[in-house]
Amino acid sequence: MQDKKQLITIKGTREGLTLFIDELCSFNEAIKELHDKIIKNKPKKDDPIVSVRIKLGNRYLEDDQDKQLTEIINQANGFKIDSIESEVIRKEDALKWKEDSKIKAINRIVRSGQVLEVKGDLLLIGDVNPGGKVVSTGNIYIMGNLYGIAHAGVDGDRNACIVASYMKPTQLRIADYISRAPDYESDGVYMECGLVDEGQDKIIIDRLQVLSNKRKELSRFERRVQNG
């Protein structure tokens, strides 16, 4: 019946719809066809919301194209975008990921008034004294005493964690979460980690062992690739 090759293939799955967009056609053609198909397949008023996964194959979307695509799906009520997946990323982004996922090993004492900032994970061999501060975009591992402030996932990564041989910090910060030391005199803890507990919506300190359950992908790179 159709003389033209389909640009958009729709598959229904248990979780919702998966849209495959042909990777060779022009973006405008694809958008046009998508528009028609979406209108045609629009759920009825009382149907449950259908979640949509979009697979782009080897196509890279610019930010505004991404926005255009999202708008089309959203404008037809009843659809919700679950994910937009592409097999390719830009070199620039790849390099940034790589940079962010490196472990920087640094051997020094971070003294009062000093700030040590790194991209990626920080492995500090030495102490963070009271009044000192360490900051990283990824995880922070301290082989030494943490008395000052540690801020992991500073660009917003709530999955980042803070580990220290001994910790009695003034503050722990992970992404936008902050927790501080209690006002009463308390002992520090050995070989523990700080991480955000989603359920309690705050930073908790727990034994290192929990990391193997709660943070399976300690490497930021793996985490980000898997999350798209």
């Binding site: 003294r111 009062s112 004294n129 009271p130």
Partner: peptide, 16 residues
């Protein structure tokens, strides 16, 4: 005293 030790730490950092 805590405050004095804290300042000493700061100074040591600067001297280093």
């Amino acid at each position: 005293e805590k405050s004095s030790v804290r300042d000493a730490d700061r100074i040591i950092g600067l001297i280093e």
